[in-house]
């Protein structure tokens, strides 16, 4: 099904200092094409981007329909600390974001994140309200497995937000507080940002616009007073609109949306997620 492209941003500015390297076409916010990663980073990023053909965004999903975005994870530095430079693929893993809207007006999320440098295999399950900020509801669950060869192999924890806005985690039967959020904080999971940012585009149209948001990073660590705003628009190799996110304890990350509201690139401190597949 083909839907209408993302609404034209009437006030949006094509900012003039769209700085790029001469040697490759990447934007500085996701240009990690140097040193041992040159030219592989640019090649894999561009080829991955060209490989998917979305004509619809996740938010246009109907009740009961499951949408899945699959991201290739590229390391931002030193081939993900790979020993030597011999890897055929630069990719250090995959992130899969799957969600569906139920009849109860909740979004059900299931995330799988695999990182072959850290060995982490995270599986996150949570529910959100059907509104732009995708605020977390009731409880969530994290299953963290690790492929490292040492003693630690798996940890699971359940979390919930108490009535007095305390983020509680239960790890192997032990309950801790991971922080408190204010009543007016709109708490979402960082993995829901793949839908939150497209949903907030009408609110963030110019460089002067930004919104405050509270992020529960990996469903464990509240990052309060985070700020989401518009960065600029580029065309590498497809038209992309950029947004930034930063906050207390949260280094700036950069999120690039395609014309259909899919996050095509999400570049964080150490990794760049590039959309390679959209299903549903």
């Amino acid at each position: 099904m083909r839907t209408t492209p993302h609404p034209v941003k009437l006030l949006k500015i094509h900012y003039c200092f769209n700085i790029m390297n001469n040697s490759n076409p990447l934007h500085w916010s996701f240009d990690y094409n140097y040193g041992a990663q040159n030219p592989q980073f640019a090649q894999e990023l561009i080829s991955t981007l060209r490989g998917y053909a979305p004509e619809v965004g996740a938010r246009q999903t109907g009740v009961g329909q499951t949408v899945r975005h699959v991201y290739n994870i590229l390391p931002n530095y030193w081939r993900g600390y790979h020993r030597g430079n011999a890897a055929k693929q630069l990719s250090i893993g995959t992130a899969i974001i799957e969600r569906s809207k139920a009849n109860n007006n909740l979004w059900y999320y299931s995330i799988e994140y695999e990182n072959t440098t850290s060995g982490e295999n995270l599986r996150l399950q949570f529910r959100c309200k059907d509104e732009p900020y995708r605020q977390l509801t009731d409880s969530w669950r994290v299953d963290a497995r690790n492929r490292g060869r040492d003693a630690y192999s798996r940890s699971t924890y359940d979390g919930h937000l108490t009535s007095d806005r305390d983020v509680k985690l239960r790890i192997n039967g032990i309950e801790i507080s991971s922080g408190t959020v204010e009543t007016d904080d709109r708490l979402t999971c960082d993995w829901a940002l793949f839908d939150v940012i497209p949903a907030l585009v009408p609110t963030i149209q110019t460089l002067d616009d930004s919104v405050e948001i509270a992020v529960l990073e990996d469903l464990a660590q509240p990052r309060l007073k985070s700020r989401l705003g518009f960065l600029e628009s580029i065309e590498i190799p497809i038209p992309l609109d950029g947004y930034y996110l930063y906050g207390i304890g949260l280094l700036p990350s950069y999120w690039w949306l395609d014309a259909y509201g899919n996050v095509a690139i999400a570049s964080k401190t150490f990794e760049t997620l590039v959309l390679k597949e959209r299903i549903g």
Partner: peptide, 28 residues
């Protein structure tokens, strides 16, 4: 050793390793 990365931790890479270290320690 509880946790030392799938690829052994070298000099840097907090964004890869620190959260996993916390998982390992809280599990321990």
């Amino acid at each position: 050793v509880l946790y030392y990365g799938q690829r052994d931790i070298g000099a840097g890479g907090a964004a890869y390793y620190d959260s996993a270290s916390t998982h390992a320690v809280t599990d321990f």
